[in-house]
């Protein structure tokens, strides 16, 4: 399995995606710094403490990498079907299940790790910049950090699951655009934050969606050993 994952990383040049993730991080850092400025210009008092900022950063990071997950599904699975390289893979002496599982593990792990690391990078960078730019006046406590760390771990796990939902829609017509549009819509639904209220905060919703995601992933290749590859 590890070997298959390594081969996927190699042939899809996954380091390119790591680079893209870092670029996305830089943009999120800029956005995080702009948020409190816009807030003060508009006279709102929404982003005034670390607690709110960390929620905003987590939402941004999650949204970004759920879309990323959609892109990876499109590249690693849908495109391989479209370019018929999946035929090639299915003619190797390896179970189709194992091949698909390797791809899905790679996609979910990437999403999970990217969300955790990016949360850390963007939050730390914001803290660093804020310490001399003073966008917000607040002190960070160990308690906030600890709470946020646990929260990030959970949201990353849920996002890794629900990031797989686009696979179902993409596979129907083997369409790259459907996959990515589904990912964007998902972010729109669960990532939107209206005055601190987000569907993602109603714990049952992300848990259900994550479960659906993993289930959809399983369903997408449940019968794969028996079906014709056209």
């Amino acid at each position: 399995m590890l070997k298959l994952i390594r081969l996927e990383i190699k042939k899809h040049k996954m380091f390119g995606y790591v680079k893209a993730a870092f670029i996305a991080n830089i943009m999120m850092i800029v956005l995080a710094c702009i948020l409190p400025i816009i807030d003060s210009i508009e006279g709102d008092s929404y982003f005034i403490d670390y607690k709110m900022m960390l929620i905003a950063i987590d939402t941004m990071v999650r949204g970004t990498f759920i879309v990323f997950s959609g892109v990876l599904i499109a590249r690693l699975i849908i495109d391989e079907y479209k370019n018929k390289t999946m035929h090639l893979l299915f003619m190797y002496p390896i179970k189709r299940h194992t091949i698909m599982l390797a791809k899905l593990i790679l996609i979910s792990s990437f999403t999970f790790i990217a969300i955790v690391i990016s949360n850390f990078i963007v939050s730390a960078a914001f803290y660093g910049i804020n310490s001399f730019a003073h966008f917000i006046i607040d002190t960070i406590t160990m308690r906030i950090i600890a709470e946020q760390a646990v929260k990030v771990l959970f949201t990353a796990l849920f996002s890794a699951g629900l990031g797989l939902i686009p696979l179902y829609f993409g596979m129907i017509k083997k369409s790259v655009s459907t996959t990515i549009v589904t990912a964007v819509l998902l972010v729109g639904v669960v990532g939107s934050d209206i005055n601190g209220f987000s569907l993602f905060n109603v714990i049952i919703i992300p848990v259900t969606l994550a479960a659906i995601g993993f289930m959809v992933a399983y369903m997408s290749f449940k019968n794969i050993e028996k079906v014709d590859v056209n």
Binding site: H87, D228, V229
Partner: peptide, 9 residues
């Protein structure tokens, strides 16, 4: 040939 290669059943 595809049947021989197990691509279609």
């Amino acid at each position: 040939m595809r049947m021989l290669m197990n691509l279609i059943k």
